[in-house]
């Protein structure tokens, strides 16, 4: 298991964002993490990579306990992530952004090799021609790719993707999905939070569902999409529920 989460809870003041979530992710898996808005998905990511310590529970990464370790400890161990709300280093160039990932991530590159790696990764995500631009000048889709490039340049073993598809148009979505599949082929374990259901149902080997901070369902996309608890959780959003139920078969985007 590359990642194990035991009974993790997180409170913010009176708000219970996560309660007793347990989860194991084997090496090489691509896991989808879904759930209605406010279900605690991003909070779970934040607990995993050390942005906040959990109120209760323990987290193990590569069989080492990392509960309440700082984000930079986890980054150096081989965990990388993207942010739901993109966080480019605006006044640095696109290349420098990616070099930060390479320099301070798992492989601890020097500036020279970081530069080469950055260019390689930027070509891979399709930002090669924009490497000398300031990150602030990119559009949203490009910023999402930049997030991804920074994470990849860290040469992670586990990659947390937080809604990399949100806000993209259909052709950008299919391009991004292709990129994610290619990353997977490099042997990187991926957990992805996603709202674009057909995408997550198609790409993931396994899906877990959070609702009100609890893990309510877990299994193959097929199993999850027929779980009555999941349908119920999405009742507030019948269209989405329908999309889940038809999940695996529809998949028009691919």
């Amino acid at each position: 298991m590359i990642l194990e989460i035991h009974d993790v809870s997180k409170n913010f003041g009176g708000l219970q964002a996560l309660s007793d979530v347990s989860l194991s992710v084997p090496e090489g898996e691509i896991l989808g993490l879904i759930g209605p808005n406010g279900a605690g998905k991003t909070t779970l990511f934040n607990v995993i990579n050390g942005v906040y310590p959990p109120t209760n529970g323990r987290v193990f990464f590569q069989s080492k306990e990392v509960t309440a370790k700082k984000p930079y400890h986890l980054a150096k161990m081989g965990l990388a992530r993207t942010h739901q709300i993109v966080q480019p280093l605006e006044e640095l160039t696109v290349r420098e952004n990616v070099m930060v990932g390479a320099c301070f991530g798992k492989e601890d590159h020097g500036l020279g090799s970081a530069r080469e790696l950055a260019e390689e990764v930027l070509d891979f995500v399709g930002l090669g021609e924009r490497k000398d631009q300031m990150a602030a000048s990119l559009n949203v889709a490009q910023k999402k790719r930049l997030e991804l490039a920074r994470a990849l340049a860290a040469r992670p073993t586990l990659l947390l993707l937080d809604e990399v598809l949100a806000g993209l148009n259909p052709s950008e979505i299919s391009a991004m999905i292709e990129t994610v599949a290619e990353i997977r082929e490099q042997g990187i374990t991926i957990i992805m939070i996603e709202h674009v259901m057909h995408a997550v149902m198609n790409v993931s080997e396994r899906v877990v569902v959070l609702d009100y901070g609890r893990l309510i369902s877990e299994g193959t996309p097929e199993e999850v999409s027929h779980d009555p608890k999941v349908i119920e959780a999405y009742l507030g959003d019948p269209k989405l529920a329908e999309e889940i139920a038809s999940g695996g078969q529809q998949g028009g985007g691919l």
């Binding site: 700082k70 984000p71 980054a75 942010h83 966080q87 280093l89 605006e90 640095l92 301070f104």
Partner: peptide, 15 residues
Amino acid sequence: MAIRENEDAAEVMGV
């Protein structure tokens, strides 16, 4: 400079 631009993001990247 990564810290200057966004300290939280810099820490997530391992700074």
